[in-house]
Simulated assay, not measured.
Amino acid sequence: MTKFALDSLDLAALLSSRVCHDVISPVGAIVNGLEVLEEEKDAEMRGHALALIKSSAAEASARLQFCRLAFGAAGSKGAEIDTGDAEHVTRQLLADERTKLEWGVPRVLMSKNKVKLLLNLCLIADAAIPRGGVISVASTGSGDEIAFTLDAKGVNARIAAAIPGLLAGLPEDGVVDARAIQVYYAGLVAQAAGLDVEISAQSEHVTITARPAAAPTAQENDAQTETEAQTEKAQAAIRA
């Protein structure tokens, strides 16, 4: 089956829209807090406004730092990223009372696309437990043989029906919108990293694995080269 192909400009635009969606809420809260400070004289209300501004600024910063690594990591093709940085931005992103992160990936320099894939899989795992729970992240092997396993456990843990198709580059009805772009992008990064992603779901438990892909055919090699080029163009378009 021929995979869906998204134009590089559309991919960059949709990823940018996703980033804006992630930060617009805390930035809006900061604006609201500043308006209260300008108009309110009551000391208690001003204190609440300052607390809102502080927490919202921290949330916006955490989301932007995560997105910078997950969607737009700078550096040339083949660059590496410290997995300690990946852990740091993930912990910041999930710093709430609903979700606990158990990180079991050793701190090493790892291929940029593999780290970006890991971060995008963390987003999918977080979305799988909308009421909170525990996300466990682990890796086995190293270098080209690296594999990841993410377990998301929580009440009503589930995976949307469209996600496997998006990861495989086969979106429903042949359309990818801003809501679906992150999962579709994760599939592109997995291809570029040479990893196959699988998802399984049981009661209160979702498991996501990424393992080295089987040796590609010549046709698949051509497709992967095109995928890498498309991903690089999108990253360049949204890079800070």
Rank of each mutant, 00 (worst) to 15 (best):
T149E: 08
A62L: 00
L166N: 02
E39N: 15
D126E: 12
T207L: 12
D151W: 10
G169L: 05
R98D: 12
A168D: 08
G72A: 07
A138I: 06
A12M: 09
E204G: 14
I81N: 02
V31S: 15
G133H: 04
K153N: 12
Q224V: 15
L9I: 08
A192S: 13
Y184E: 04
L6K: 04
T2V: 12
D177C: 08
D196Q: 10
T140F: 05
M110F: 00
A168Q: 10
D196S: 10
P212F: 02
Q92I: 06
L150Y: 00
V134M: 10
A213M: 12
E38G: 13
R158Y: 11
R63D: 01
A86E: 01
N32V: 14
L11S: 00
L121W: 02
K41A: 08
F66Y: 00
G132W: 02
T83F: 03
V105D: 01
V155I: 13
A180E: 14
L166G: 02
G47S: 12
A218H: 12
Q235W: 11
S136H: 00
I24R: 14
R98H: 12
Q224E: 15
A218I: 10
N32C: 13
I181E: 01
Q224H: 09
L188K: 06
E87W: 00
L34H: 13
Q191H: 13
F4Y: 14
R131T: 02
R179V: 05
V137R: 01
A180F: 05
T99A: 03
A152W: 00
R46N: 15
H21G: 13
C67L: 10
N113Q: 12
A186I: 07
S61F: 06
V155F: 07
S76K: 15
A73R: 05
L37Q: 08
V27H: 03
G143P: 03
N221K: 15
S16G: 14
E80Q: 07
I163H: 05
K112C: 02
D222F: 10
E220V: 15
N120M: 04
L150G: 00
Y184M: 15
S17P: 11
N32G: 14
S8K: 09
E38V: 14
V108W: 01
D177S: 09
A43K: 07
A138F: 11
L14Y: 02
L119P: 00
R131Q: 08
T225C: 15
A58Q: 04
L50F: 05
S56A: 14
Y185F: 14
A70G: 07
L34V: 15
N221W: 07
S136I: 05
G84C: 07
